[in-house]
Design a protein around this nucleic acid. Structure first.
Lengths: 337, 337
DNA sequence: TTGAAAGCGCTAACAA
DNA sequence: TTGTTAGCGCTTTCAA
């Protein structure tokens, strides 16, 4: 038989104070005498009391939740962003409520609706493309919203991001500077992953800017593009367009797959084909040869978003903020000579 | 000016029914007439009503949360487990409340205390080693507890796991079968990562079982052991014990680092040194040569834990369950001849 | 099938 | 510094 869990009333009775004093003792800022606090804590310990955040949230209308949507939980870049967020918010007692969208705006809409039922105090969404209904839900919620990992054309609220297209431009510029001309792009299904689509667009734009042919586009399937899909795409590319002298991949994971495929086939990297990725995942620095890539500073994105949320909740952030992150080109041997 | 968010009372008024009917209309099983439900839904849509899970949770004493602790959010194995859990629980409307412990039992204790304040209906903890206080908290909480990724000597509640030590034994047996004798182990700081420690113990035990020297133990630092740390450990190993003919790494990530270091130094794998990892991360199948490893089926662990929780909440699971997962040896070229 | 009354456990607001 | 009162938005319980 399970006895009813003790409440503040039980603690109050045992400690010989009112429930309100118990409540105050559990807040850091509550002005309570040291004696009262000690009595409360001792009683709480004795009864094995566990504070009920649910009741607190209902009464105070403060859930201490920040809802976060990411495309996939299984991605080191997004994990770094979540960690940055989490670390930045924990100091204020804010807890993250995480959901993943599987790179799909419809799933995102459902997820946002579900998360809002928990009455989060702020919401962080990855990407700048959403369904109309998702936008409406976020508007109505009247909480700070931060879009990350993108520079939306029509922001919902605050933004901490960068141009995925421009980042690809950095890679193309670098490759052209290295003397490469017949450059291909390996990426995913255009319809789904909006950041991937932006990267492809950025690739095409940069190629045209250099007066180069921008039609070597290999579709590697639905996002996220795995290492295996990167390898398969590389195999297809070598078969179809064997004179290709450089490849830009939508992420380091597919880039590593492409690199491995080259190793398996004895295709020299970078001598015959240069390979570049995106994200600066750990593998990019470690593999042989190490991969040229772009570091978008995922942890910083999370930390900045957290900082914005804290300001917004403090009311010290009147206007929507737009924080641009400048991705950094990481030049490594996979494109070097 | 932000108007107060509509509540069920507002919906009831607009729909011309009682709040109780609104409440029933929002439950799937609520017996409500079709007309009433339609009126409620229309009113809700019109007012932009968002159901308040907090109030629901307080009144019904059902939070629809399942709390989960993992060592790190940035790990594909644990991410796969969380996905398995999440997918299995979503069908019943259960949402995951995730926290990470940074591979530290003290942090885990704090995290568990924090998560319990949200009144989760069940708790999943990674690993079988916890502080006494953490155990006491979980005991008192009187909710289903599932320990995963381990076979605890003294389980708290249910278990879905495998023997990390035995998994290492599989690798040692395989290497010995391949004719290797001077086998080293690359792993982390014994004090912290309990699964890593178990793997090291399993390695030592298996070596002794084969009558082999089990002192080639390279400490790669505090967990998680990164690719870079695996590479550094391999460099140290090649310098200190150059006659080593095989290396077992605590995970595929460090194994890949070790492999890369060998490539960089022109040390032939597997001809001069065989390398094996743990986890069957995607990289193990893709890199060149592909890595021999052990697949502990992380997604299945999550799915099974979810199934256990559903049964436990239904009351159809009287006794603590122990579900053993049998990890699978994945033999690949990094140890082959 | 629907409704009325009460209360989940906490804290805002006010008073002492 | 402490206490009293009321109520956050739902759902349990009971009644119709």
């Amino acid at each position: 038989m399970t006895r009813r869990a003790p409440t503040m009333i039980d603690i109050a009775r045992l400690a010989g104070v009112s429930p309100m004093t118990v409540s105050r003792a559990f807040k850091d800022d509550g002005r309570v005498s040291d004696t009262a606090r000690a009595a409360v804590m001792q009683a709480a310990e004795q009864l094995g009391y566990v504070f009920d955040s649910t009741a607190s949230a209902l009464r105070s209308q403060r859930s201490d939740f920040v809802a976060v949507t990411i495309p996939s939980i299984n991605n080191a870049n997004f994990a770094d962003t979540v960690r940055g967020l989490s670390d930045g918010l924990r100091a204020r007692g804010l807890q993250i409520l995480l959901g993943y969208t599987d790179y799909d705006v419809q799933t995102e809409e459902t997820l946002i609706a579900q998360l809002l039922r928990r009455r989060p105090e702020a919401m962080v969404v990855t990407g700048g493309t959403h369904t109309d209904r998702a936008r409406a839900l976020l508007d109505k919620a009247a909480i700070p919203v931060v879009e990350i990992w993108d520079l939306p054309a029509r922001p919902i609220g605050h933004v901490v991001g960068f141009s995925n297209a421009a980042a690809m431009g950095m890679l193309v510029d670098h490759l052209v500077g290295q003397g490469r001309r017949r450059i291909a792009f390996i990426g995913g299904d255009a319809a789904r992953d909006t950041r991937g689509t932006d990267r492809r667009r950025g690739f095409v734009a940069a190629m045209r800017r250099h007066g180069l042919d921008a039609t070597r586009l290999i579709d590697a399937g639905a996002p996220p593009i795995s290492m295996a899909e990167g390898a398969a795409a590389m195999a297809a590319l070598l078969a179809r367009l064997p004179d290709t002298d450089a490849v830009v991949c939508v992420s380091d994971l597919s880039a590593f797959g492409a690199l491995s495929e080259c190793q398996r086939r004895g295709v020299a990297v970078p001598d015959r084909v240069a390979i570049a990725g995106f994200g600066d995942y750990e593998i990019a620095a470690i593999c042989v040869p190490p991969l040229t890539t772009v570091n978008p500073f995922p942890g910083q994105i999370g930390a900045q978003a957290a900082a914005l949320i804290l300001q917004a909740l403090d009311g010290t952030l009147p206007d929507p903020a737009l924080i641009g992150i400048t991705p950094q080109l990481m030049t490594r041997a996979s494109t070097g000579s």
